[in-house]
Amino acid sequence: MNMMNIEKLIAVSSSGKDFEFEMPLKDKIVIQGEEYDIKLYYTEESGLYLVWNGKKYPVEIVKSKQNKYEILFNSISYSFTIETPFSLQRMKVLKVNKPSVGNISVKAPMPGKIVDIICQKGSKVSRGEPLLILEAMKMENEILSPIDGTVLSVSVSKDSTVMKDDILVEIEEKKG
C-alpha cells in the first residue's frame, strides 16, 4: 500500500553533506563499502535507541518539523533535512533565482532574562560579536552574532524575560 514513487531519500546535514538511502528504506547501512545491520528501537523503559555493530546508542529527537530533524545521537546533536532527488534539484533551481542574502533570526538558547542589549537596529555586527546579554542559571551569557551582517530588528527589551527559542535579534547577512 506504500507509495513508492520516490526512488531514494537524501539526508542533507547542516554542513551540506549528503547521505543517500535507497527506497524503500531498509534496516541496513553501508559504511566504507561494508554493509551493516542497523535498527532503531523504542521502548517505554529505555526510550529511543539505536543498535549498530553490536552496540547500543541513545537517540533523542530534539526537533522534528516537516522534513527537518534535529537529533541527539550518542549525546551529540545533528541536524538533517530529508530530501528527494527532485526537492534537491528544486533547492538548487530556486537558489539561483534568489538573491544570496538571507536573514537570520538569533533565538534565545535558553529561557532567561535580558539584562543588557548591546546591538541596535542598523548596527553592523561581525560573527562572534556580542548582541545582548541573557541571564540564566545565575550566569550572564553573551549572545553572539552567528554571521557578519546588519541588525534588522531587536525584538526584546532590557529586563524582559524570554522563553527558549524566542527570537531576540534579526540580522541581515552581509553579501558576498
Binding site: 507509495m3 520516490i6 516537516q66 522534513n67 530530501e83 528527494t84 527532485f86 526537492s87 528544486r90 533547492m91
Partner: peptide, 13 residues
C-alpha cells in the same frame, strides 16, 4: 505551508 511539493503532498496524505 511546506518547503517543497513532495513534503506538501506527503503531509496531505
Amino acid at each position: 505551508i511546506y518547503d517543497d511539493e513532495e513534503n506538501t503532498i506527503l503531509a496531505l496524505k
